[in-house]
Simulated scan of single mutants.
Amino acid sequence: MATTGRVLGVDGCRDGWVGVAPDPDGPRAYTAPDLRALVALAEGDGSVGLVGVDIPVGLLDEGWRLADQEAARALGARRASIFRTPVRAALEAPDHASGVRISARASGGGFSVQAWGLRVKVLEVDLLVRGGEDRVREVHPELSFARLAGRPALHPKKTWAGQQERLALLAAAGIDLTRLRGGTGSAAPDDVVDAAAVAWTALRLARGDAVSVPSPPQPAPYGLHAAIWV
């Protein structure tokens, strides 16, 4: 998928979302409580043609997403960063226990508390893309870093060594976060680094260079596809 305009890489953070636009004169950060507002804020500095987001896009009605399974296999020691995404009905349940029961009926198994903790953001993005927002693509930062390095990252992202490893990979790819402009609000440092990694893959998408996991993308309801781009 080749496109024009700026790109925005997005990651969830404590108070909503943080985005990084890898502009030619240096990366710029944005924060907002919801994704639609974040994109609108970024568009104040120029048209955004594509949005990469570190959140599942393309929820199934039954079974498990191939994207999560294949990404976990590819990441090796970093596979814990991939959560198995439950079906939409499970995420719409009133509580985790109810969601697990729905998931067991639809997919043959439950899902983690961590995956449940992402449900508000997952459903927010799901509503947005089902409503016709066609600029959004799913990206996982650890897959992006694995592509940059030619192997999965050596260190966990929240460690000092892990942060330095990822910052160096981004800088070598032309996204130097020491030049970051704009505000990062309450976003943790690793959220900002992850958003920048997503932005790198968004650039690849915009040029038509990115590949999907799985390939081809898995069809999903509402005319969507379930795939992580890298």
Results as ranks from 00 to 15, higher is better:
L143V: 10
V136F: 12
H155V: 06
Q163Y: 00
V139S: 03
A161H: 09
L154A: 15
P152M: 12
E142W: 07
P152I: 12
L143D: 09
R166K: 11
Q164R: 15
Q164L: 12
K158W: 09
A168I: 10
E138S: 09
E165K: 01
E165T: 05
H155N: 15
R151G: 03
R137V: 15
A161M: 09
W160A: 15
L148E: 00
A168M: 12
H155W: 15
L169K: 02
E142H: 13
R166A: 05
Q163E: 13
H140V: 01
E165M: 05
E138D: 09
D134Y: 00
L143E: 11
R137A: 14
P152K: 09
R137H: 13
V139G: 02
G150W: 02
K158M: 11
T159R: 03
A149R: 08
G150M: 06
K157T: 05
D134M: 02
R147D: 15
P141M: 02
V139F: 00
R135G: 09
A146M: 09
R166C: 07
A149G: 06
F145S: 08
R137W: 10
V136E: 07
R151K: 14
R151N: 02
A161Y: 03
G162S: 04
S144N: 01
G162F: 04
P141S: 08
H140Q: 03
E138H: 07
T159C: 03
P156Q: 01
V136D: 06
P156I: 03
H140P: 06
V136R: 00
H155L: 09
R151V: 08
S144C: 13
F145N: 03
R151I: 04
A168V: 13
L154Y: 12
G162D: 00
R137S: 12
R166G: 04
K158A: 14
D134E: 14
R137Y: 13
P156W: 00
S144K: 00
P156A: 08
D134N: 12
E142G: 07
W160L: 14
F145D: 02
V136N: 06
R137T: 12
R135A: 08
Q164K: 12
G150D: 04
H140W: 00
K158I: 10
L154H: 15
E165I: 08
L167C: 07
H140F: 03
E165D: 04
P152F: 09
Q164N: 12
P141W: 01
P141A: 05
H155Y: 15
K157V: 07
W160F: 13
E165L: 08
F145P: 08
A146D: 08
A149S: 11
F145G: 06
E142P: 10
V139P: 02
R151Q: 11
K158N: 12
W160S: 12
H155C: 10
K158E: 14
R166W: 08
R135S: 11
L143W: 00
G150E: 03
A146F: 01
A146C: 08
P156C: 04
A153C: 15
A149T: 04
S144Q: 04
E142I: 03
L169P: 01
E138M: 07
L148D: 02
H140A: 01
H155S: 14
L169V: 07
D134V: 08
G150Q: 03
L143M: 13
A168H: 11
A149D: 11
